[in-house]
Amino acid sequence: MHERRLAHVYGWLLLLPAAVLLVAFTHYPTVATLYDSLFSTATRLRPSTFVGLDNYRALGADPVFWQVVQNNFWFAVGTVPASIALAIAMALWVNGRLPGRALVRMAYFTPTVLPMIAVANIWLFFYTPEIGLLDKLVAAFGGSSHNWLGDPSTVLTCIIAMTIWKEAGFFMIFYLAALQSISPELREAATVEGASRWYYFRRILFPLLMPTTLFVLINALINAFKLVDHLFILTKGGPDNASNLLLYYIYEAAFSFFDTAYAATLTAVLLGFLAVMAVSQFFLFDRRIHYR
C-alpha cells in the first residue's frame, strides 16, 4: 500500500515539469483569454467590469474585423493549395535522379531557414516601385511602374506570392521524406501493368501521400492564420487594411490601441476558428486516408 502511494508520487513528480509548462503557457492563457473577453478594458477612470457578450457584439459590428476575416480567407485560399501543389512538384523532382540533387534540395529549403524579417526585407526590395526587381522586369517588357505594396488591389496578392515561396520549400521536406519511404517497386509494378506516370501519381502516389498532405494542410492553414511578422516590415496591414490579417489585427488592438478586452475577444474567435478547422479536418479526412 505504502509502495503504491510512493509510485503515484513519483509518477506525478515526473509529470510535473511538463504539466507546469503546459498549464502555464497553454491552458491558463487560453482560459484567461476567454475570461477576459467577457470584461471591459480597464482604464484609469473606469475599472474593468463584466459586460457579458458585449465585446462579441462590438466585434460583429466592426467593419474592419469583417474585412480582416475576408482578407484572411483569401489569403488562405491563395496560399494553401498553391504551396502544397508546389511542394509536391518540387519533392517529386528532387526525389528523382538528378545531378546536384543535394544542392537543389538545399536551395528549396533556404526560404524556411531564413529569418522571417530578412525574408520580408528581400521581398520589400522586389516590390519597391521604380528600383525594385519586379518593376525592373515590368519595365523591361515595356510596362509602367507600379506601387505593388501601396495599391489595395495588389498588396494581398504580393503577400500571398511571398508566403507561397516561403512555405513550399518547408512542406517539400515532408513530402520528400514520405516519397523516400515508398518502395520503388510499386512504381515498377505499375509500369509493367502499363500505367502512365500521371496514372501512377493519381492512383498510387497521391493516395499514399495523403497522411503527409493532411499534416501539411493543417499546418498550412494554421500558418495562414498566424502570419504576422511579414506585415510589420512590408505593409503594417495597409493600405486601408487591404493586407490586414487576423493576428496582426489582434496585435494592433492589444499593443497599439491597448484595447486588451477587444484583443482577447478577437483571440477567442481566432482560437475557436482554428479548433473547428483542425477537428473537422481530422473527422473529414481521417477515414479516407490510408495510414501504413
Binding site: S183, E185, L186, A190, V192, R203, L208, H290
Partner: peptide, 27 residues
C-alpha cells in the same frame, strides 16, 4: 514495359497498400 505484354511478380510483392485485394488484382 507496358508494350511488352509481360506480367511480373516482385520479391516484395509490390502490392499497393491503400487498395484492397480486388483493386490490386484488377489494377
Amino acid at each position: 514495359p507496358s508494350q511488352r505484354h509481360v506480367s511480373m511478380v516482385f520479391q516484395s510483392y509490390a502490392l499497393f497498400p491503400h487498395l484492397d485485394v480486388g483493386e490490386n488484382i484488377v489494377f
